[in-house]
């Protein structure tokens, strides 16, 4: 098996798809992106070595052996990716347990800015109309019951605000 164009193209497609998925907000999609990216990198590592038959002394003549080092590195990389995938899955699950979704949330300062912008109509940032979220809006808690809720409009980032108030 020689490093032909198809394999190189596969590496490119895996990288592209992985990066696209990384830009998503949902952690499960990010995770799939990381897995695809990881597979792309592994394939790339494999392409870096000489191709040939199994590198076993006495079975294959020295000239026809494949390079075993990239294969050893790919094995290590696969193990590492597997472990971290499991960890990320656990984090996505924990996030779902705690908040009912696994979206990557804004940091406290971004949230502050968004809240400030919501009160001041003149400086609304572009990304406010992000549309409906994939999770169900939580029920049983109304604006009247929450004295700290200055802005009566629920808005798309409601879950973040609840987390701040809590």
């Amino acid at each position: 098996m020689s490093p032909d164009l198809i394999l190189v193209a596969v590496v490119g497609v895996l990288f592209a798809a992985g990066v696209t998925l990384l830009l998503e907000r949902s952690l499960s999609r990010v995770l799939i992106g990381i897995i695809m990216l990881g597979n792309g990198v592994n394939l790339l590592l494999l392409l870096g070595g000489r191709s040939g038959d199994a590198p076993i002394l006495g079975v294959t003549p020295a000239g026809g052996m494949s390079d075993p080092l990239p294969q050893a590195m790919v094995l290590t990389a696969i193990v590492i990716t597997l472990g971290l995938t499991a960890f990320l899955l656990a984090m996505a699950y924990r996030s779902w347990q705690l908040t009912g979704h696994d979206e990557v949330r804004d940091d406290p300062e971004d949230r502050q800015i968004v809240r400030r912008a919501e009160r001041d109509e003149s400086s609304v940032p572009d990304d406010l109309d992000v549309g409906v979220r994939p999770w169900a809006e939580p029920t049983g808690r109304t604006e009247e019951a929450d004295p700290e809720q200055v802005d009566p409009e629920p808005g798309p980032r409601r879950l973040d605000r609840e987390a701040d108030d809590a």
Partner: peptide, 27 residues
């Protein structure tokens, strides 16, 4: 969990870039 998500994903990405660089250096 919120802060960790960002941290883990960013670190993983940097590891991927590092690994790609290693692959290219070896090649």
């Amino acid at each position: 969990i919120r802060a960790g998500t960002t941290y883990v994903v960013v670190s993983l990405l940097s590891s991927m870039i590092f690994l790609t660089a290693i692959g290219l250096v070896y090649a």
